[in-house]
Design a protein around this nucleic acid. Structure first.
Lengths: 228, 228
DNA sequence: CCTCGTATAATTGTATACAATCATACGAAC
DNA sequence: GTTCGTATGATTGTATACAATTATACGAGG
């Protein structure tokens, strides 16, 4: 998602620009910068030991990714996330995850199905031991497998972008994850629909899964950090 | 949407980079370049009377917009669209247009509702006179009003990106538009659902509208230009 | 005739220099 | 004291110079 993009393989990792891009994205998603904090080209350049040119190019990409906002002749600022943004993302994701589940049902391979089961099993294990960090990791992996299995670079890219975007939230809300079991149950239902080849069911279950996740966040007041 | 972005206001129009970006985007969407045609930085720069720096920055953005593909140390190439890309876009759009219709139902203003009716009226007029070019313009405008009315910058940006992307197809298929009346009827149903405040109905109708548009393209063999 | 290696040219990647724009500080006028 | 205008500095925007990489041409060897 640049701020909402449609189709690219991004950022060769070994050019200076690629390194700047990846480093800044990582830092922003990790919460290193404050919202609306200004990023100066020379400062970032000095930190990474490069000139302004690759930094500027990385900035342009980060702007389209939606992570920073560039004001002409003024500067680059880290974008904030509002409660409404979070809502929008979850609603959009719910529809797209549904579609991904449908396509995954039609295209998933034996190996991917296997990995899905394995991931789910591990998630339940970690949930039972109350290891929320690892449980969340399995949760993410479960969704990623579906993105890959849906066999659409376009949809996969979109969903990964949104997922990344939302991970900024997780940074703040992970601790209070009380939805482990519920989430795993829904994953199980989804996997069974996919396994049974029931695309309509899979789409519906995946859709509701995201909607429920959002409802849960609201109910538990996890969005109240975004007051603006 | 760069290739799939999530949230940006793009490209200040008055910088050289912004001009390069807009010009190239326009040209690519208008079909000025062949698929996989190489874009050389100096050539583009000379054409527009600017140096390589703004051209390179524009390239980075166009890559994220999905209009070109950059191979490190090699060059920038205009991306092609395959029949599968078209299918993916339409399926994704069907879900997102549905969501946009839902939100529009909840947020649309009197003025916007008015403009919607007016646009629809004009579309029917042009259709009756067999003026497909103008009819298509009204069609686009109808959707745009909904994008704006849905009151979500994020969704609006996504849908406009996809719409733009798909407009490359229209360039090739507009002539054989035999769906004018059907399309207008569906628009009417959608508008009435919005007017009645029936969000569920609006989402469903908008969803089916895009699905039908796609089915129609397939049925009429309009995708056979994309053989790859 | 084909294959491979090297040399040359062309192109992209990065750094730096300069121009344009914007922010701040200071002082004059009221 | 407040307001406005100007001057200075800082920052971004663009152009150019140089480095690194890649493509092409050509010839030697088989």
């Amino acid at each position: 998602m640049g701020q909402y993009d449609v189709k690219s393989e991004v950022s060769d990792k070994y050019s200076l620009r690629g390194r700047v891009f990846n480093k800044l994205r990582e830092d922003i998603l990790a919460g290193k910068y404050q919202e609306n904090e200004e990023l100066r080209e020379v400062v970032i350049g000095e930190e990474l030991g490069v000139s302004r040119t690759p930094v500027r190019e990385a900035f342009r990409q980060l702007e389209l990714e939606g992570l920073i906002r560039i004001v002409p002749n003024k500067g680059a600022y880290v974008t904030g996330i509002t409660a409404k943004d979070v809502r929008d993302i979850y609603m959009i994701r719910s529809r797209l995850e549904g579609l991904a589940a449908r396509w995954a049902t039609e295209n998933i391979s034996e190996e991917q199905l296997d990995e899905l089961e394995e991931t789910l099993c591990l998630a339940e294990f970690h949930a039972s031991k109350n290891r929320m960090e690892q449980m969340a990791q399995m949760d993410s992996r479960f969704h990623e497998i579906i993105y890959e299995a849906c066999d659409s670079k376009m949809l996969e890219h979109l969903l990964k972008d949104f997922h990344q975007y939302v991970s900024r939230i997780r940074q703040k809300t992970l601790s209070s994850n009380v939805r482990g079991n519920e989430s795993n149950e829904e994953h199980t239902k989804l996997m069974e629909a996919i396994k049974a080849g029931n695309a309509d069911e899979a789409e519906q279950v995946a859709h509701m899964h995201i909607m429920n996740a959002y409802e849960n966040m609201v109910k538990n007041g996890l969005l109240e950090v975004y007051n603006s």
